[in-house]
Simulated assay, not measured.
Amino acid sequence: MTVRVLILPGLFNSGEAHWQSQWERQFSGLHRVEQQDWETPNAKDWVERLNQEIAAADGEVVLVAHSLACTLITRWAQQYPEARKVRGALLVAPSDTEADSYPSGTSGFVPMSTQRLPFPTIMVASTDDPYVTQERAKTFSQAWGSELVWVENAGHINGQTGYGPWPEGAELLFKLTGDPQFQLK
């Protein structure tokens, strides 16, 4: 059975140049979870939407989160601890919603969860992300039980910082799914 990959953009969604959008065009079977409000998200609404998508999947799912969506996954896992259908998650550029640098307008995403996630996770963090310090990224990866992968000077690991196709990220997704379409050739 094929694993369903759910794409979870963060605040403001992921534009055309973003690696999540490019992966959707490049690979088969990826599905973006559409949220009702990308500009001023409410954690309760986002968690419910994610839960609907996971519940609707025929088999196991792998979650691919960027930025605020990493926090979304931790909130979802707290509310739905059974999480049996989730095979793993790729957590990219987690935002520290408690930091002064985090944009205003979101509600319900603080405090940051430090609860261990009940499925395997790989967290990718940049050494110069404006929305999370290296120290906080390490703290989150340890708390969540994530394998931590550092990317040097990658900003927020998005389209604006040159992360379009991002084949190295797809290789990390291969580790979670086992699906050969994500392997570097």
Results as ranks from 00 to 15, higher is better:
Glu147Asp: 14
Glu82Leu: 10
Gly10Leu: 04
Ile157Asn: 03
Pro41Asn: 05
Gly15Gln: 11
Leu30Trp: 09
Ile73Trp: 02
Thr2Ala: 11
Thr2Asn: 12
Ala125Lys: 08
Pro94His: 10
Trp38Ile: 01
Asp100Pro: 11
Thr127Ile: 03
Val47Tyr: 08
Glu48Tyr: 11
Pro130Met: 02
Gln26Cys: 00
Ala55Met: 07
Val151Ser: 00
Glu171Lys: 14
Pro81Asn: 11
Glu53Tyr: 10
Thr177Arg: 10
Tyr131Trp: 15
Ala143Glu: 10
Gln52Gly: 07
Gln115Ser: 14
Gln142Tyr: 06
Glu60Arg: 13
Ser141Leu: 05
Gln20Leu: 08
Leu72Gln: 04
Pro165Glu: 14
Ser21Arg: 05
Trp23His: 03
Phe174Ile: 02
Val124Lys: 10
Trp144Pro: 03
Val92Asp: 00
Ser67Glu: 00
Pro167Tyr: 09
Asn153Leu: 08
His156Glu: 08
Glu24Leu: 02
Gln35Ile: 09
Leu172Lys: 12
Ala137Thr: 04
Tyr163Pro: 08
Ser104His: 14
Thr161Leu: 03
Tyr80Thr: 06
His66Glu: 01
Asn158Ala: 02
Gln52Phe: 05
Gln26Thr: 15
Pro130Glu: 00
Asp179His: 12
Thr177Asn: 08
Ser21Tyr: 02
Ser28Lys: 15
Phe140His: 05
Leu90Ser: 05
Leu91Gln: 06
Ser141Gln: 03
Leu63Lys: 07
Gln20Lys: 02
Arg136Cys: 03
Ile157Phe: 07
Ala89Phe: 05
Gln22Met: 13
Gln20Pro: 08
Gly108Asn: 10
Arg49Met: 03
Thr71Asn: 15
Gly145Lys: 02
Arg87Tyr: 05
Ser104Gln: 15
Arg87Trp: 01
Ala170Leu: 03
Phe119Arg: 02
Thr139Met: 12
Glu39Lys: 14
Arg25Lys: 15
Met1Arg: 13
Glu24Pro: 01
Lys44Cys: 01
Ala89Tyr: 10
His18Phe: 10
Pro111Arg: 04
Gln52Thr: 10
Phe119Thr: 04
Ser141Cys: 01
Ser21Gln: 00
Ile73His: 04
Pro180Gly: 02
Ala137Lys: 07
Asn42Ile: 13
Pro41Val: 02
Ser14Ile: 00
Ile7Asp: 06
Trp46Thr: 03
Arg25His: 12
